[in-house]
């Protein structure tokens, strides 16, 4: 029963009057696989980004590892972010660097500036990256340019990058939205493995309700910035799905709508 993340009354209002999140509260426990579902504009992206303060919340608190992220100084924030890994819909790898260089980027938060800038990763770091790549079956791509890999492979590299941070928590923003079904299965399986085998808590934004039901231990449904469902997958009824998505559940299983607009996104460093 140990909490890892405690979100209280999180609200995000933009300058143009749009309220993306309204009084969102949730408590996540160690080792959970939480899927957040909701239609475009429901606030999924905003919620995820408020947790590691990529977006600055207007009100509320986010307690993680003993501190309120919303109140941390810039330097402390960077330290805490090391413990939170994040993967993105578009993988966000540096395409012109090799796969292993991208994976090693996960260690940058722990390294001192000069070695980091010069790319002088320690031998143990390099070995760990190589091991991770082997375990995921990507060891034939080690020195290949990241941009040459397929979408599914790139996403897995992204996960490994986050893993190199030794995170306690993983935030996954629509990780399979741009992937074909087979790659999607590999990626979701990998994320599930993280929770089960390594005890890393994962919060995953998903469009695909079916994937959420199949992999998650807990589902949170968002609608227009409010939580309308927070329970185990078996309690998710068609009625609730209809309320969240405003349509017939069976029409929604196949593939995602576009990524939510993030025009007013503020990157806080």
């Amino acid at each position: 029963m140990n909490k890892i993340l405690s979100v209280k009354n999180l609200t995000k209002r933009y300058r143009n009057g749009i309220t993306a999140l309204s009084n969102v509260s949730m408590e996540i426990e160690h080792g959970e696989f939480v899927a957040i579902i909701g239609s475009s504009g429901s606030g999924k992206s905003t919620l995820l980004r408020c947790i590691n303060r990529l977006i600055q919340p207007t009100e509320g608190s986010v307690e993680f590892d003993g501190s309120d992220i919303c109140k941390l100084s810039s330097a402390e924030l960077k330290k805490i972010r090391r413990k939170i890994g994040m993967i993105f819909q578009h993988h966000n790898l540096v395409n012109s660097l090799t796969v292993i260089q991208n994976v090693l980027h996960g260690r940058l938060g722990y390294m001192r500036t000069i070695p980091a800038v010069l790319g002088l990763y320690s031998d143990s770091d390099r070995r760990k990256a190589l091991d991770l790549l082997e375990q995921t079956g990507l060891n034939s791509f080690v020195t290949q340019r990241a941009g040459e890999l397929s979408g599914g492979q790139q996403q897995r590299v992204g996960i490994l990058r986050a893993l190199m941070q030794n995170p306690m928590l993983m935030l996954c923003d629509e990780p399979i939205a741009s992937l074909d079904p087979h790659s999607a299965k590999l990626v979701m399986g990998l994320i599930k493995q993280l929770t089960v085998e390594r005890g890393i808590t994962c919060i995953v934004n998903l469009h695909q309700v079916e994937a959420a039901v199949r992999y998650a231990t807990r589902i949170i449904g968002l609608d227009h910035g409010n939580i309308v469902f927070d329970d185990t997958p078996d309690k998710l009824t068609d009625d609730i799905i209809r309320k969240i998505y405003g349509g017939n559940p069976h029409d929604l299983i196949i593939g995602g709508k576009m990524h939510e607009g993030t025009e007013a996104q503020e990157l806080v460093s």
Binding site: N52, L54, K78, K79, I80, R81, R82, I84, G85, M86, F88, N92, L93, H105, G106, L108, G109, M111, T113, A116, V117, G158, R161, A162, Q165, L171, L267, V268, S269
Partner: peptide, 12 residues
């Protein structure tokens, strides 16, 4: 975004 999320500082 990815860079900020890893906790890297400006120069990194």
């Amino acid at each position: 975004e990815a860079a900020v999320a890893t906790g890297a500082t400006y120069w990194k």
